[in-house]
Nucleic acid binder design. Structure first.
Lengths: 269, 269
DNA sequence: AGCGTAAGTATCACGATATAATACTTAGTG
DNA sequence: CACTAAGTATTATATCGTGATACTTACGCT
Protein backbone atom coordinates (compact mmCIF):
# COMPACT_ATOMS: atom_id res chain seq x y z
CA UNK A 1 0.00 0.00 0.00
CA UNK A 2 2.80 2.44 0.80
CA UNK A 3 3.94 4.22 -2.33
CA UNK A 4 7.46 5.54 -2.69
CA UNK A 5 6.40 8.53 -4.76
CA UNK A 6 8.33 11.72 -4.06
CA UNK A 7 5.69 12.90 -1.59
CA UNK A 8 4.90 9.73 0.27
CA UNK A 9 4.75 9.99 4.05
CA UNK A 10 7.50 8.77 6.28
CA UNK A 11 11.15 8.10 5.77
CA UNK A 12 13.42 10.65 4.21
CA UNK A 13 10.91 12.85 2.45
CA UNK A 14 11.87 16.44 3.12
CA UNK A 15 8.44 17.70 2.13
CA UNK A 16 6.77 15.73 4.88
CA UNK A 17 6.69 17.09 8.41
CA UNK A 18 6.30 14.12 10.70
CA UNK A 19 5.65 16.24 13.76
CA UNK A 20 2.58 17.77 12.13
CA UNK A 21 1.26 14.40 11.06
CA UNK A 22 1.68 13.07 14.59
CA UNK A 23 -0.21 16.04 15.96
CA UNK A 24 -3.09 15.28 13.61
CA UNK A 25 -3.16 11.74 14.93
CA UNK A 26 -4.16 13.11 18.31
CA UNK A 27 -7.09 14.92 16.71
CA UNK A 28 -8.23 11.75 14.98
CA UNK A 29 -8.16 9.90 18.27
CA UNK A 30 -11.47 11.52 19.18
CA UNK A 31 -14.72 10.04 17.83
CA UNK A 32 -18.25 8.97 18.80
CA UNK A 33 -17.08 6.78 21.62
CA UNK A 34 -13.91 8.62 22.59
CA UNK A 35 -14.91 12.09 23.58
CA UNK A 36 -12.74 12.91 26.58
CA UNK A 37 -9.32 11.31 26.53
CA UNK A 38 -6.65 11.25 29.19
CA UNK A 39 -2.98 11.52 28.34
CA UNK A 40 -2.49 7.77 28.64
CA UNK A 41 -5.53 7.02 26.52
CA UNK A 42 -4.32 9.42 23.88
CA UNK A 43 -0.95 7.75 23.98
CA UNK A 44 -2.54 4.36 23.59
CA UNK A 45 -4.86 5.38 20.76
CA UNK A 46 -2.20 7.20 18.76
CA UNK A 47 0.62 4.77 19.33
CA UNK A 48 2.86 7.62 20.42
CA UNK A 49 4.95 7.33 23.55
CA UNK A 50 4.12 9.22 26.69
CA UNK A 51 6.55 12.07 26.06
CA UNK A 52 5.41 12.68 22.51
CA UNK A 53 1.77 12.57 23.49
CA UNK A 54 2.46 15.02 26.25
CA UNK A 55 4.16 17.47 23.92
CA UNK A 56 1.55 17.29 21.19
CA UNK A 57 -1.43 17.41 23.52
CA UNK A 58 0.08 20.40 25.28
CA UNK A 59 0.71 22.16 21.98
CA UNK A 60 -2.81 21.50 20.74
CA UNK A 61 -4.17 22.76 24.03
CA UNK A 62 -2.12 25.95 23.90
CA UNK A 63 -3.21 26.51 20.33
CA UNK A 64 -6.86 26.16 21.29
CA UNK A 65 -7.55 22.93 19.45
CA UNK A 66 -8.12 20.86 22.58
CA UNK A 67 -9.95 21.77 25.75
CA UNK A 68 -8.57 20.41 28.98
CA UNK A 69 -10.67 19.76 32.03
CA UNK A 70 -8.49 20.92 34.93
CA UNK A 71 -10.36 18.55 37.24
CA UNK A 72 -10.05 15.28 35.32
CA UNK A 73 -7.08 16.35 33.18
CA UNK A 74 -8.83 14.95 30.19
CA UNK A 75 -8.69 16.51 26.75
CA UNK A 76 -11.66 17.04 24.49
CA UNK A 77 -12.40 18.70 21.15
CA UNK A 78 -12.67 22.48 21.39
CA UNK A 79 -15.00 24.89 19.70
CA UNK A 80 -12.30 25.31 17.07
CA UNK A 81 -13.47 22.00 15.63
CA UNK A 82 -16.82 23.58 14.83
CA UNK A 83 -15.18 26.64 13.36
CA UNK A 84 -13.38 24.36 10.96
CA UNK A 85 -16.71 23.00 9.81
CA UNK A 86 -17.84 26.57 9.29
CA UNK A 87 -14.83 27.26 7.08
CA UNK A 88 -15.48 24.03 5.23
CA UNK A 89 -19.04 25.03 4.43
CA UNK A 90 -17.89 28.21 2.77
CA UNK A 91 -15.52 26.22 0.59
CA UNK A 92 -18.19 23.79 -0.56
CA UNK A 93 -20.20 25.68 -3.13
CA UNK A 94 -22.67 22.85 -3.45
CA UNK A 95 -23.93 23.39 0.08
CA UNK A 96 -24.69 27.05 -0.51
CA UNK A 97 -26.66 26.21 -3.62
CA UNK A 98 -28.48 23.32 -2.01
CA UNK A 99 -29.42 24.80 1.33
CA UNK A 100 -32.50 26.84 0.35
CA UNK A 101 -33.86 23.95 -1.70
CA UNK A 102 -33.29 21.52 1.13
CA UNK A 103 -35.13 23.77 3.54
CA UNK A 104 -38.01 24.02 1.11
CA UNK A 105 -38.07 20.26 0.68
CA UNK A 106 -38.07 19.57 4.39
CA UNK A 107 -41.06 21.91 4.75
CA UNK A 108 -42.87 20.18 1.90
CA UNK A 109 -42.53 16.64 3.14
CA UNK A 110 -42.16 17.27 6.86
CA UNK A 111 -39.44 14.68 7.23
CA UNK A 112 -35.70 14.71 7.87
CA UNK A 113 -33.73 15.74 4.79
CA UNK A 114 -30.00 15.32 4.17
CA UNK A 115 -27.39 16.27 1.63
CA UNK A 116 -24.69 13.60 1.17
CA UNK A 117 -21.43 13.83 -0.75
CA UNK A 118 -19.14 11.13 -2.00
CA UNK A 119 -15.92 10.89 -0.01
CA UNK A 120 -13.70 8.16 -1.46
CA UNK A 121 -15.67 4.95 -0.92
CA UNK A 122 -17.82 6.48 1.77
CA UNK A 123 -20.54 9.08 1.80
CA UNK A 124 -20.52 11.96 4.21
CA UNK A 125 -23.61 13.80 5.38
CA UNK A 126 -22.78 17.40 4.69
CA UNK A 127 -26.03 19.01 5.71
CA UNK A 128 -28.87 17.65 7.80
CA UNK A 129 -32.27 19.15 8.49
CA UNK A 130 -33.98 17.07 11.17
CA UNK A 131 -37.75 17.52 11.33
CA UNK A 132 -38.69 14.71 13.63
CA UNK A 133 -36.95 13.27 16.64
CA UNK A 134 -34.27 10.92 15.43
CA UNK A 135 -31.27 9.26 16.97
CA UNK A 136 -28.49 11.69 17.66
CA UNK A 137 -26.12 10.42 14.99
CA UNK A 138 -28.73 11.22 12.35
CA UNK A 139 -29.14 14.80 13.44
CA UNK A 140 -25.58 16.06 13.10
CA UNK A 141 -23.51 16.64 10.00
CA UNK A 142 -20.12 15.07 9.33
CA UNK A 143 -21.04 11.42 9.69
CA UNK A 144 -19.17 9.19 7.26
CA UNK A 145 -20.65 5.87 6.19
CA UNK A 146 -19.72 3.15 3.69
CA UNK A 147 -21.25 4.26 0.40
CA UNK A 148 -22.55 0.80 -0.49
CA UNK A 149 -24.57 0.61 2.72
CA UNK A 150 -26.48 3.81 2.10
CA UNK A 151 -29.20 4.77 -0.34
CA UNK A 152 -27.27 7.96 -1.15
CA UNK A 153 -24.13 6.01 -2.01
CA UNK A 154 -26.07 3.59 -4.13
CA UNK A 155 -27.80 6.23 -6.26
CA UNK A 156 -24.55 8.02 -6.82
CA UNK A 157 -22.98 4.77 -7.91
CA UNK A 158 -25.82 4.24 -10.35
CA UNK A 159 -24.58 7.26 -12.30
CA UNK A 160 -21.08 5.86 -12.70
CA UNK A 161 -19.79 4.36 -15.93
CA UNK A 162 -20.18 0.57 -15.99
CA UNK A 163 -16.53 -0.30 -15.27
CA UNK A 164 -16.15 1.96 -12.26
CA UNK A 165 -19.48 0.78 -10.95
CA UNK A 166 -18.40 -2.85 -11.05
CA UNK A 167 -15.11 -2.04 -9.44
CA UNK A 168 -16.84 -0.21 -6.60
CA UNK A 169 -19.43 -2.94 -6.10
CA UNK A 170 -16.64 -5.43 -5.62
CA UNK A 171 -14.19 -3.47 -3.53
CA UNK A 172 -15.86 -0.75 -1.52
CA UNK A 173 -16.30 -1.61 2.14
CA UNK A 174 -19.44 -2.85 3.88
CA UNK A 175 -20.33 -2.94 7.52
CA UNK A 176 -23.18 -4.80 9.26
CA UNK A 177 -24.86 -1.98 11.15
CA UNK A 178 -28.01 -4.00 11.78
CA UNK A 179 -28.86 -7.70 11.46
CA UNK A 180 -30.68 -6.72 8.27
CA UNK A 181 -27.92 -4.69 6.64
CA UNK A 182 -27.37 -5.99 3.10
CA UNK A 183 -23.95 -7.65 2.93
CA UNK A 184 -24.62 -9.51 -0.31
CA UNK A 185 -22.83 -7.54 -3.02
CA UNK A 186 -24.98 -9.16 -5.66
CA UNK A 187 -28.11 -7.75 -4.09
CA UNK A 188 -26.54 -4.34 -3.84
CA UNK A 189 -25.59 -4.58 -7.52
CA UNK A 190 -29.24 -5.31 -8.32
CA UNK A 191 -30.42 -2.27 -6.41
CA UNK A 192 -27.88 -0.09 -8.16
CA UNK A 193 -28.87 -1.51 -11.54
CA UNK A 194 -32.48 -0.72 -10.77
CA UNK A 195 -31.48 2.80 -9.80
CA UNK A 196 -29.92 3.31 -13.20
CA UNK A 197 -33.42 2.97 -14.66
CA UNK A 198 -35.40 4.64 -11.92
CA UNK A 199 -33.12 7.46 -10.86
CA UNK A 200 -33.63 6.83 -7.16
CA UNK A 201 -33.00 4.27 -4.42
CA UNK A 202 -35.19 3.18 -1.56
CA UNK A 203 -33.59 0.96 1.06
CA UNK A 204 -34.69 -0.49 4.37
CA UNK A 205 -33.10 -1.34 7.73
CA UNK A 206 -29.57 -0.66 6.51
CA UNK A 207 -28.33 1.69 9.21
CA UNK A 208 -30.93 1.12 11.89
CA UNK A 209 -33.96 -1.13 12.03
CA UNK A 210 -37.30 0.21 10.86
CA UNK A 211 -35.72 3.09 9.07
CA UNK A 212 -36.36 3.59 5.38
CA UNK A 213 -34.01 5.71 3.35
CA UNK A 214 -34.73 7.37 0.00
CA UNK A 215 -32.14 9.08 -2.18
CA UNK A 216 -31.85 10.85 -5.54
CA UNK A 217 -28.61 11.91 -7.21
CA UNK A 218 -27.41 15.47 -7.77
CA UNK A 219 -25.90 15.59 -11.25
CA UNK A 220 -25.50 17.58 -14.39
CA UNK A 221 -26.83 15.70 -17.40
CA UNK A 222 -24.31 13.14 -18.56
CA UNK A 223 -22.06 13.69 -15.57
CA UNK A 224 -21.48 11.27 -12.73
CA UNK A 225 -23.02 12.31 -9.43
CA UNK A 226 -20.92 13.12 -6.41
CA UNK A 227 -23.80 14.20 -4.20
CA UNK A 228 -27.31 13.09 -3.37
CA UNK A 229 -30.39 14.37 -1.59
CA UNK A 230 -31.58 11.85 0.92
CA UNK A 231 -34.48 11.42 3.28
CA UNK A 232 -34.98 9.09 6.25
CA UNK A 233 -38.40 8.01 7.44
CA UNK A 234 -39.98 5.47 9.74
CA UNK A 235 -40.82 2.19 8.02
CA UNK A 236 -44.00 2.00 10.09
CA UNK A 237 -45.68 5.10 8.74
CA UNK A 238 -44.11 5.00 5.30
CA UNK A 239 -44.84 1.99 3.09
CA UNK A 240 -43.10 2.25 -0.29
CA UNK A 241 -46.35 3.15 -1.98
CA UNK A 242 -46.78 6.25 0.13
CA UNK A 243 -43.12 7.20 -0.30
CA UNK A 244 -43.46 7.05 -4.06
CA UNK A 245 -46.44 9.34 -3.94
CA UNK A 246 -45.64 11.82 -1.23
CA UNK A 247 -41.86 12.02 -1.09
CA UNK A 248 -40.21 10.92 -4.31
CA UNK A 249 -41.55 13.62 -6.63
CA UNK A 250 -40.39 16.42 -4.35
CA UNK A 251 -37.11 14.71 -3.54
CA UNK A 252 -36.20 14.21 -7.18
CA UNK A 253 -37.25 17.72 -8.15
CA UNK A 254 -35.04 19.07 -5.41
CA UNK A 255 -32.08 16.94 -6.41
CA UNK A 256 -32.48 17.97 -10.04
CA UNK A 257 -32.66 21.62 -9.14
CA UNK A 258 -29.27 21.48 -7.44
CA UNK A 259 -26.99 21.03 -10.41
CA UNK A 260 -23.30 21.70 -10.00
CA UNK A 261 -21.98 25.17 -10.78
CA UNK A 262 -20.89 25.75 -14.39
CA UNK A 263 -17.17 26.08 -13.63
CA UNK A 264 -17.44 23.59 -10.80
CA UNK A 265 -14.14 22.32 -9.44
CA UNK A 266 -16.20 20.23 -7.10
CA UNK A 267 -15.26 16.57 -7.21
CA UNK A 268 -13.11 16.81 -4.09
CA UNK A 269 -10.06 14.84 -3.06
CA UNK B 1 0.96 39.50 26.02
CA UNK B 2 3.49 36.70 25.85
CA UNK B 3 3.67 34.88 29.15
CA UNK B 4 6.79 33.04 30.23
CA UNK B 5 4.92 30.33 32.12
CA UNK B 6 6.38 26.83 31.74
CA UNK B 7 4.01 26.01 28.87
CA UNK B 8 3.98 29.25 26.93
CA UNK B 9 4.35 28.94 23.17
CA UNK B 10 7.59 29.69 21.41
CA UNK B 11 11.16 29.90 22.56
CA UNK B 12 12.78 27.08 24.40
CA UNK B 13 9.76 25.30 25.77
CA UNK B 14 10.33 21.62 25.29
CA UNK B 15 6.63 20.87 25.66
CA UNK B 16 5.72 22.99 22.68
CA UNK B 17 6.05 21.61 19.17
CA UNK B 18 6.43 24.57 16.86
CA UNK B 19 6.03 22.51 13.72
CA UNK B 20 2.56 21.41 14.79
CA UNK B 21 1.53 24.94 15.66
CA UNK B 22 2.70 26.17 12.27
CA UNK B 23 0.71 23.45 10.55
CA UNK B 24 -2.40 24.59 12.39
CA UNK B 25 -1.81 28.10 11.12
CA UNK B 26 -2.37 26.82 7.61
CA UNK B 27 -5.72 25.41 8.66
CA UNK B 28 -6.75 28.70 10.21
CA UNK B 29 -5.90 30.52 6.99
CA UNK B 30 -9.20 29.29 5.54
CA UNK B 31 -12.40 31.18 6.32
CA UNK B 32 -15.57 32.69 4.79
CA UNK B 33 -13.66 34.68 2.23
CA UNK B 34 -10.63 32.44 1.79
CA UNK B 35 -11.87 29.10 0.62
CA UNK B 36 -9.34 27.99 -1.99
CA UNK B 37 -5.82 29.16 -1.35
CA UNK B 38 -2.75 28.85 -3.52
CA UNK B 39 0.66 28.14 -2.06
CA UNK B 40 1.67 31.79 -2.26
CA UNK B 41 -1.57 32.95 -0.67
CA UNK B 42 -1.13 30.44 2.12
CA UNK B 43 2.39 31.67 2.61
CA UNK B 44 1.20 35.24 2.76
CA UNK B 45 -1.67 34.56 5.14
CA UNK B 46 0.35 32.44 7.55
CA UNK B 47 3.51 34.50 7.49
CA UNK B 48 5.54 31.37 6.77
CA UNK B 49 8.15 31.37 4.04
CA UNK B 50 7.63 29.53 0.79
CA UNK B 51 9.55 26.43 1.82
CA UNK B 52 7.75 26.02 5.11
CA UNK B 53 4.37 26.57 3.51
CA UNK B 54 5.21 24.00 0.90
CA UNK B 55 6.18 21.40 3.48
CA UNK B 56 3.17 21.94 5.71
CA UNK B 57 0.64 22.16 2.89
CA UNK B 58 2.03 18.99 1.39
CA UNK B 59 1.89 17.20 4.72
CA UNK B 60 -1.69 18.31 5.37
CA UNK B 61 -2.63 17.18 1.88
CA UNK B 62 -1.05 13.76 2.32
CA UNK B 63 -2.79 13.39 5.66
CA UNK B 64 -6.15 14.18 4.07
CA UNK B 65 -6.73 17.49 5.81
CA UNK B 66 -6.50 19.58 2.65
CA UNK B 67 -7.88 18.86 -0.78
CA UNK B 68 -5.83 20.01 -3.73
CA UNK B 69 -7.29 20.87 -7.08
CA UNK B 70 -4.81 19.41 -9.58
CA UNK B 71 -5.94 21.97 -12.14
CA UNK B 72 -5.56 25.20 -10.17
CA UNK B 73 -3.15 23.79 -7.57
CA UNK B 74 -5.19 25.45 -4.90
CA UNK B 75 -5.80 23.92 -1.51
CA UNK B 76 -9.17 23.79 0.21
CA UNK B 77 -10.67 22.27 3.37
CA UNK B 78 -11.35 18.55 3.04
CA UNK B 79 -14.22 16.45 4.30
CA UNK B 80 -12.07 15.74 7.33
CA UNK B 81 -13.05 19.16 8.59
CA UNK B 82 -16.65 18.04 8.80
CA UNK B 83 -15.68 14.83 10.49
CA UNK B 84 -14.03 16.88 13.17
CA UNK B 85 -17.31 18.67 13.77
CA UNK B 86 -18.96 15.28 14.05
CA UNK B 87 -16.47 14.23 16.73
CA UNK B 88 -17.02 17.53 18.49
CA UNK B 89 -20.75 17.00 18.67
CA UNK B 90 -20.31 13.72 20.48
CA UNK B 91 -18.12 15.41 23.04
CA UNK B 92 -20.60 18.17 23.75
CA UNK B 93 -23.26 16.56 25.92
CA UNK B 94 -25.36 19.68 25.86
CA UNK B 95 -26.06 19.29 22.16
CA UNK B 96 -27.36 15.76 22.57
CA UNK B 97 -29.72 16.85 25.31
CA UNK B 98 -30.85 19.94 23.46
CA UNK B 99 -31.39 18.54 19.98
CA UNK B 100 -34.82 16.93 20.41
CA UNK B 101 -36.14 19.99 22.24
CA UNK B 102 -34.81 22.30 19.57
CA UNK B 103 -36.48 20.28 16.86
CA UNK B 104 -39.73 20.41 18.77
CA UNK B 105 -39.39 24.16 19.24
CA UNK B 106 -38.68 24.81 15.58
CA UNK B 107 -41.84 22.87 14.70
CA UNK B 108 -43.87 24.83 17.23
CA UNK B 109 -42.89 28.29 16.11
CA UNK B 110 -41.97 27.57 12.50
CA UNK B 111 -38.94 29.80 12.60
CA UNK B 112 -35.18 29.30 12.60
CA UNK B 113 -33.89 28.06 15.95
CA UNK B 114 -30.29 28.01 17.19
CA UNK B 115 -28.27 26.77 20.12
CA UNK B 116 -25.40 29.07 21.06
CA UNK B 117 -22.57 28.46 23.50
CA UNK B 118 -20.19 30.85 25.14
CA UNK B 119 -16.67 30.67 23.74
CA UNK B 120 -14.40 33.10 25.56
CA UNK B 121 -15.83 36.54 24.75
CA UNK B 122 -17.68 35.26 21.70
CA UNK B 123 -20.66 33.04 21.18
CA UNK B 124 -20.60 30.16 18.77
CA UNK B 125 -23.65 28.71 17.08
CA UNK B 126 -23.42 25.04 17.86
CA UNK B 127 -26.62 23.83 16.28
CA UNK B 128 -28.87 25.53 13.75
CA UNK B 129 -32.27 24.46 12.50
CA UNK B 130 -33.23 26.70 9.61
CA UNK B 131 -36.95 26.72 8.83
CA UNK B 132 -37.14 29.61 6.41
CA UNK B 133 -34.75 30.80 3.75
CA UNK B 134 -32.04 32.79 5.44
CA UNK B 135 -28.63 34.04 4.42
CA UNK B 136 -26.10 31.28 4.18
CA UNK B 137 -24.07 32.26 7.23
CA UNK B 138 -27.18 31.83 9.38
CA UNK B 139 -27.84 28.31 8.20
CA UNK B 140 -24.57 26.62 9.12
CA UNK B 141 -23.13 25.83 12.53
CA UNK B 142 -19.75 26.96 13.75
CA UNK B 143 -20.13 30.69 13.30
CA UNK B 144 -18.44 32.68 16.03
CA UNK B 145 -19.63 36.19 16.87
CA UNK B 146 -18.79 38.80 19.52
CA UNK B 147 -20.98 37.91 22.50
CA UNK B 148 -21.95 41.51 23.22
CA UNK B 149 -23.38 41.95 19.72
CA UNK B 150 -25.76 39.00 19.96
CA UNK B 151 -28.94 38.41 21.89
CA UNK B 152 -27.59 35.03 22.99
CA UNK B 153 -24.41 36.55 24.38
CA UNK B 154 -26.37 39.24 26.19
CA UNK B 155 -28.74 36.85 27.96
CA UNK B 156 -25.89 34.66 29.04
CA UNK B 157 -24.12 37.69 30.42
CA UNK B 158 -27.24 38.60 32.35
CA UNK B 159 -26.75 35.47 34.45
CA UNK B 160 -23.20 36.42 35.45
CA UNK B 161 -22.30 37.77 38.87
CA UNK B 162 -22.22 41.58 38.91
CA UNK B 163 -18.42 41.99 38.82
CA UNK B 164 -17.82 39.66 35.89
CA UNK B 165 -20.70 41.24 34.05
CA UNK B 166 -19.22 44.72 34.37
CA UNK B 167 -15.84 43.47 33.32
CA UNK B 168 -17.27 41.86 30.21
CA UNK B 169 -19.38 44.88 29.33
CA UNK B 170 -16.26 47.00 29.34
CA UNK B 171 -13.75 44.72 27.67
CA UNK B 172 -15.41 42.23 25.38
CA UNK B 173 -15.11 43.09 21.70
CA UNK B 174 -17.72 44.71 19.48
CA UNK B 175 -17.99 44.88 15.74
CA UNK B 176 -20.24 47.07 13.57
CA UNK B 177 -21.92 44.46 11.39
CA UNK B 178 -24.67 46.85 10.27
CA UNK B 179 -25.08 50.63 10.49
CA UNK B 180 -27.51 49.92 13.31
CA UNK B 181 -25.33 47.56 15.36
CA UNK B 182 -25.21 48.83 18.94
CA UNK B 183 -21.71 50.04 19.72
CA UNK B 184 -22.66 52.00 22.82
CA UNK B 185 -21.61 49.83 25.76
CA UNK B 186 -23.95 51.77 28.04
CA UNK B 187 -26.93 50.74 25.94
CA UNK B 188 -25.79 47.14 25.92
CA UNK B 189 -25.44 47.30 29.69
CA UNK B 190 -29.05 48.49 29.89
CA UNK B 191 -30.26 45.60 27.78
CA UNK B 192 -28.35 43.13 29.91
CA UNK B 193 -29.70 44.71 33.08
CA UNK B 194 -33.21 44.37 31.71
CA UNK B 195 -32.51 40.74 30.88
CA UNK B 196 -31.61 40.07 34.50
CA UNK B 197 -35.23 40.85 35.36
CA UNK B 198 -36.92 39.41 32.31
CA UNK B 199 -34.86 36.33 31.57
CA UNK B 200 -34.67 37.00 27.87
CA UNK B 201 -33.27 39.43 25.31
CA UNK B 202 -34.81 40.77 22.13
CA UNK B 203 -32.52 42.73 19.85
CA UNK B 204 -32.86 44.28 16.40
CA UNK B 205 -30.64 44.91 13.37
CA UNK B 206 -27.47 43.78 15.15
CA UNK B 207 -26.11 41.27 12.66
CA UNK B 208 -28.14 42.13 9.58
CA UNK B 209 -30.79 44.73 8.99
CA UNK B 210 -34.41 43.84 9.55
CA UNK B 211 -33.53 40.80 11.55
CA UNK B 212 -34.85 40.42 15.08
CA UNK B 213 -33.15 38.04 17.46
CA UNK B 214 -34.62 36.54 20.61
CA UNK B 215 -32.66 34.51 23.18
CA UNK B 216 -33.17 32.76 26.51
CA UNK B 217 -30.41 31.32 28.70
CA UNK B 218 -29.77 27.64 29.40
CA UNK B 219 -28.89 27.35 33.09
CA UNK B 220 -29.28 25.37 36.21
CA UNK B 221 -30.86 27.42 39.00
CA UNK B 222 -28.26 29.65 40.59
CA UNK B 223 -25.63 28.79 38.00
CA UNK B 224 -24.30 31.10 35.35
CA UNK B 225 -25.38 30.24 31.81
CA UNK B 226 -22.93 29.14 29.17
CA UNK B 227 -25.49 28.42 26.49
CA UNK B 228 -28.65 29.95 25.10
CA UNK B 229 -31.51 29.06 22.81
CA UNK B 230 -31.95 31.69 20.17
CA UNK B 231 -34.33 32.45 17.37
CA UNK B 232 -34.02 34.80 14.39
CA UNK B 233 -37.04 36.28 12.65
CA UNK B 234 -37.89 38.98 10.14
CA UNK B 235 -38.59 42.35 11.74
CA UNK B 236 -41.33 42.92 9.19
CA UNK B 237 -43.58 40.09 10.20
CA UNK B 238 -42.61 40.01 13.86
CA UNK B 239 -43.31 43.11 15.97
CA UNK B 240 -42.22 42.66 19.58
CA UNK B 241 -45.78 42.19 20.68
CA UNK B 242 -46.24 39.15 18.47
CA UNK B 243 -42.86 37.75 19.51
CA UNK B 244 -43.78 37.98 23.17
CA UNK B 245 -46.98 36.09 22.52
CA UNK B 246 -46.05 33.49 19.95
CA UNK B 247 -42.37 32.83 20.46
CA UNK B 248 -41.14 33.73 23.90
CA UNK B 249 -43.19 31.25 25.94
CA UNK B 250 -42.01 28.30 23.86
CA UNK B 251 -38.47 29.58 23.62
CA UNK B 252 -38.12 30.00 27.37
CA UNK B 253 -39.73 26.65 28.10
CA UNK B 254 -37.29 25.01 25.75
CA UNK B 255 -34.29 26.75 27.26
CA UNK B 256 -35.42 25.83 30.76
CA UNK B 257 -35.90 22.21 29.81
CA UNK B 258 -32.29 21.91 28.71
CA UNK B 259 -30.51 22.12 32.01
CA UNK B 260 -26.91 20.97 32.21
CA UNK B 261 -26.20 17.38 33.21
CA UNK B 262 -25.78 16.76 36.94
CA UNK B 263 -22.06 15.98 36.79
CA UNK B 264 -21.56 18.41 33.97
CA UNK B 265 -17.96 19.26 33.19
CA UNK B 266 -19.30 21.57 30.56
CA UNK B 267 -17.93 25.06 30.81
CA UNK B 268 -15.34 24.58 28.10
CA UNK B 269 -11.99 26.23 27.55
C1' DA C 1 -6.23 6.97 57.19
C1' DG C 2 -1.95 5.81 54.80
C1' DC C 3 0.42 3.19 51.71
C1' DG C 4 1.22 1.87 46.83
C1' DT C 5 0.68 2.38 42.21
C1' DA C 6 -0.47 4.61 38.23
C1' DA C 7 -1.04 8.90 35.86
C1' DG C 8 0.41 13.39 34.93
C1' DT C 9 4.30 16.83 34.77
C1' DA C 10 8.97 18.65 34.28
C1' DT C 11 13.96 18.40 32.83
C1' DC C 12 17.83 17.60 29.79
C1' DA C 13 21.58 15.88 26.62
C1' DC C 14 21.47 13.99 22.05
C1' DG C 15 20.99 13.60 17.10
C1' DA C 16 17.30 12.95 13.91
C1' DT C 17 14.58 15.92 11.36
C1' DA C 18 12.74 20.23 10.06
C1' DT C 19 14.83 24.17 7.95
C1' DA C 20 15.54 27.78 4.24
C1' DA C 21 18.45 28.73 0.43
C1' DT C 22 18.73 27.45 -4.13
C1' DA C 23 17.89 25.44 -8.47
C1' DC C 24 14.60 23.42 -11.57
C1' DT C 25 9.99 23.07 -13.90
C1' DT C 26 5.55 24.45 -15.24
C1' DA C 27 1.80 27.78 -16.22
C1' DG C 28 -0.07 31.90 -17.46
C1' DT C 29 0.57 36.93 -19.75
C1' DG C 30 1.57 40.67 -22.76
C1' DC D 1 7.13 33.42 -28.15
C1' DA D 2 9.59 35.24 -24.56
C1' DC D 3 9.02 36.70 -19.77
C1' DT D 4 7.64 36.34 -15.15
C1' DA D 5 5.63 34.40 -11.44
C1' DA D 6 4.18 30.32 -9.22
C1' DG D 7 4.86 25.74 -8.01
C1' DT D 8 8.18 21.80 -7.23
C1' DA D 9 12.46 19.37 -6.02
C1' DT D 10 17.16 19.01 -3.75
C1' DT D 11 20.65 19.48 -0.18
C1' DA D 12 23.87 20.88 3.66
C1' DT D 13 23.23 22.63 8.20
C1' DA D 14 21.92 23.26 13.13
C1' DT D 15 17.58 23.84 15.13
C1' DC D 16 14.17 21.68 17.49
C1' DG D 17 11.79 17.68 18.48
C1' DT D 18 13.00 13.43 20.94
C1' DG D 19 12.46 9.94 24.66
C1' DA D 20 14.68 8.47 28.86
C1' DT D 21 14.44 9.81 33.44
C1' DA D 22 13.08 11.97 37.61
C1' DC D 23 9.62 14.43 40.14
C1' DT D 24 4.80 15.29 41.67
C1' DT D 25 0.04 14.54 42.15
C1' DA D 26 -4.19 11.75 42.29
C1' DC D 27 -6.60 7.67 43.33
C1' DG D 28 -7.75 2.76 44.95
C1' DC D 29 -6.96 -0.74 48.29
C1' DT D 30 -6.49 -3.25 52.95
Amino acid sequence: MTSDSPHAPGKQNTLYVGALAKGLRLLHAFDESHTRLSLSELSERTGLDKSATQRFANTLHLEGMLDKDPRTRRYSPSHAWLQMAYAYYWSDTLVARAMPRLIELSQQIGETVNLAELSEDHIIYVSRLPCKRTHFAASIAGRRLPALSTSAGRVMLSTFPEAERQEALQNWPLHPYTPRTTLDRGKIADMVAQAVEQGYVISHHEMILNETSIAAPVRSPGQTAFAAVQCSVSSYSWPEERIREEILPYLQDTANSISPAPDSPEPRG
